[in-house]
Each structure stands twice: as C-alpha cells, then as structure tokens.
Nucleic acid binder design. Structure first.
Length: 275
DNA sequence: AAGCGCCGCAACCGCCATCTG
DNA sequence: GCAGATGGCGGTTGCGGCGCT
C-alpha cells in the first residue's frame, strides 16, 4: 500500500518555518479547525506538505504549548513514566499538559539520558514486555465510544487496552475514566526531585522512593489527578488516551498529606503489576 | 578574532493503524 | 474484503548557536 513521501513533491518548501508561514497556518486553522492536513497547505496557501503543517501546529503553534523550562516535577514524571512506558512519547506527553512528544523526546535524548547515565542508571523501560494480541475491529467496536477525533486509539494503547480489559473484567473493579494529568495546587507536594530520585533507585528494579523531597523547587506539581471514585483504588479505563492503554489501577489521593510520596510509589507499583 | 567541535532542537522520514469509499 | 487516503508516532538527521582553544 505504499505511499510516496509527502514532501517529495517538487516545489514544496522544507526546513525552518518563517513567521509568515506560521501566521498563515495559524489563521487557517483558527478559521477552519484542525484536520485535513493533506489539503490544508493548498487551502492555506502554504508551500508545505500536510505532515509538515501538522507537525508545526502540534508542536509549536497550537494554543497552550509550553516551551522550555521543564520543571523538576515534570522531569521526575518524565523519568518515571519513561520507566513505565518506554519511548512512548505521545503517551508521556499526554500526562504533561502543554508539552509535546517531540519536546519530551528531545529532552530525554539530550538531557535526561545523560543525566541518568552519569548517575550510573541505564533506564530499562518496559518496552519489551510481551505484546498482547492485536485487537480486531470487532473488539474495538465494543470499546467505549467517544468523539470521533478521540476515538482513534493509539496502536500500542489499543492493544494494551484490550489486554487490560480482560484483566479488569477478571478482577471486577469499577471502571472510572482516567483524566489527564493537570496542574494542581502546590500544596500537595509531589514526589522527590530527579536528583533525589537518582540517588534513590536503581535501574534494575525501577524507582524506589527516596526520602521526601529535599531541595525541591516551589513550582507547581504534577500528579495523576482526581480519581472520581471512592475507595482505595479506582480502575480507570475507556478514554482513548488513557494511561497504559485504557485500564489501570490507581490509588486515590490520600487525605493524609504525608502520603504524597506514598501515592506515587503506589501508582508506580500498580502500573508495574499491570504491565 | 577565527576556527573548530559539540550540543540542542526543529524538522524530516518511514512506518503503522485507522478510516473511507 | 480490499485498496487508497489520512493521521499519528517514534527514530533520525542536520543546521544553527555556543563555548572552547
């Protein structure tokens, strides 16, 4: 089913985007919305391929994009999520509001890898876990329906979700939708900084909790947020970009303020078990 | 001041999954 | 059910900036 490279056409511009091109693209999308990337350049008067337009929009022009200044909390989260998910940058980015997969990927490759290596840590993401059987369309049809744009699950998520569905059914837990991670009040301080993390866990056994954050930045924290179920755990599922493919068991926020580190560690352990 | 090498990041490429007719 | 079109993802590349000599 081959396809010619989208930018192979003679006459299409490549390389860095000019401000004029950015403006054209932004204006067009604001007026017409996202989508139809193939035909978008022509309609918008851009000499770019659709893929290039999409990338530019998704990574730089989209409203709400944060650039640079990745906080210690975000860094911690990236490291932990990478340990769980491997190089699934889009999934990781989905937990970091305003961050793009490309930025996280670059940050990981250029900074965090070195940092971890310098600390003698060689990250071993759970990427080589046995893959669940491929989901057929009929199975996908039985999945919870959401808006079309969101209905399309990522390939890995989908397969994992299928696996998790079975597990979830077996253990008969209540399904709740896992919301995206959002910023919450710094009053709920999260887990340790990466530095403390580095001193606190080895690459072989995943992250072990280090002592409660010393030298933390006073910035806002990121946590998997607000599980709308009562009880010790909520089994989350159904969302198209649900963490770990749709179904996961997460501890609910404890009212006890000292449970901050505990909560993340518990999340981590539970994810490991699910994986 | 010039040359050189390194590094970070924006952008491209190839592939795969899903959609659509 | 099939084939083409489209969207999306992860890996890789290459250029520009910066620091060092």
């Amino acid at each position: 089913m081959g396809r010619s490279p989208c930018c192979a056409k003679v006459g299409l511009r490549r390389g860095p985007w000019s401000t004029k091109e950015d403006t054209l693209l932004t204006n067009f999308i604001q007026e017409n919305g996202e989508g139809q990337w193939r035909s978008l350049p022509k309609k918008a008067g851009l000499l770019r391929c659709g893929k290039s337009c999409r990338l530019r929009w998704m990574n730089y022009l989209r409203p709400g994009i944060k650039r640079g200044n990745i906080s210690q909390d975000e860094e911690d989260l990236i490291v932990r999520l990478h340990g769980l998910l491997g190089n699934r940058w889009s999934l990781i980015a989905g937990r970091l509001p305003g961050r793009t997969d490309n930025e996280i990927k670059n940050y990981w490759n250029t900074y965090l890898l070195k940092k971890l290596n310098n600390a003698g840590i060689h990250p071993k993401p759970h990427k080589d876990l046995p893959k669940p059987p491929k989901l057929k369309k009929s199975a996908a049809a039985s999945a919870p329906t959401v808006a079309k744009k969101q209905k399309k699950p990522k390939r890995v998520e989908r397969a994992e979700a299928d696996d998790k569905v079975d597990d979830a059914e077996k253990i008969q837990k209540t399904k709740v939708y896992l919301p995206k991670a959002i910023r919450i009040s710094p009053g709920f301080s999260r887990t340790d900084s990466l530095d403390s993390l580095l001193s606190g866990f080895s690459s072989s056994d995943g992250a072990e909790p280090a002592a409660e954050g010393s030298g933390r930045k006073p910035e806002a924290s990121f946590v998997p947020m607000a599980w709308p179920e009562v009880g010790d755990y909520g089994v989350c599922g159904g969302g198209d970009d649900d963490f770990l493919g749709g179904y996961c068991v997460l501890p609910l926020p404890q009212s006890d303020a000292s449970s901050d580190a505990y909560m993340l560690d518990q999340v981590y352990e539970d994810y490991l078990q699910l994986l």
